[in-house]
């Protein structure tokens, strides 16, 4: 048992926690009755996915992805001297010293788009409350059923 934990959970403990958070969000999105609670669950689901992406770009002992001034000027000098060895196209920055910037870029826009779509969902909740007087899913379904029966 201890051996299994050591070889399976410990190297991937963060992914296990992301899956737990993701399943909490999924459970709330399916099982909760209140529409606002469903939206909170969906947002938690979304953040779990964002966490998964960003944690892919983490490097042990790496710094934030901002190339500091001295290294930047060294890069310009490198190009001024003809780009180093023949055939070399890239400045020899060690990529292990900086976190992977690509997941950050993709997730940064996703967060802002996420809050904009959350606003649309909340607007729909307000319209539903204006029409049905409640945000509980079973009561809304009952009212829709009675309207259909009348017709």
């Amino acid at each position: 048992m201890m051996e299994w934990i050591k070889t399976t959970i410990v190297p991937h403990f963060n992914f296990w926690i992301y899956v737990v958070i993701m399943m909490l969000g999924l459970w709330a999105a399916i099982g909760k009755n209140n529409l606002i609670k469903k939206l909170i669950g969906l947002s938690i689901f979304q953040t779990a996915i964002l966490l998964l992406y960003v944690s892919m770009g983490v490097k042990e002992g790496a710094s934030i992805p901002i190339v500091d001034e001295t290294m930047g000027e060294a890069a310009v000098d490198f190009m001024a001297q003809g780009g180093g060895a023949a055939g070399a196209t890239a400045f020899p920055i060690n990529p292990d010293l900086f976190a992977n910037p690509l997941p950050h870029v993709l997730m940064l826009t996703a967060i802002v788009v996420g809050v904009a779509t959350l606003g649309v969902a909340l607007a729909l909740c307000q319209v539903i409350f204006r029409d049905f007087g409640t945000l509980e899913e079973p009561e809304i379904l009952n009212q829709i059923q009675t309207i259909q029966d009348d017709v």
Binding site: I36, S43, T47, L50, A99, M107, L118, L122
Partner: peptide, 26 residues
């Protein structure tokens, strides 16, 4: 995790705007 730009966005959006929008709706 070293994702400073994402942390900045989340500090303004997740801890600020989304809570305000939800409270407005509630």
């Amino acid at each position: 995790m070293g994702a400073v730009d994402v942390a900045f966005t989340e500090a303004t959006v997740g801890a600020g705007i989304s809570g305000a929008l939800m409270i407005a709706t509630i």
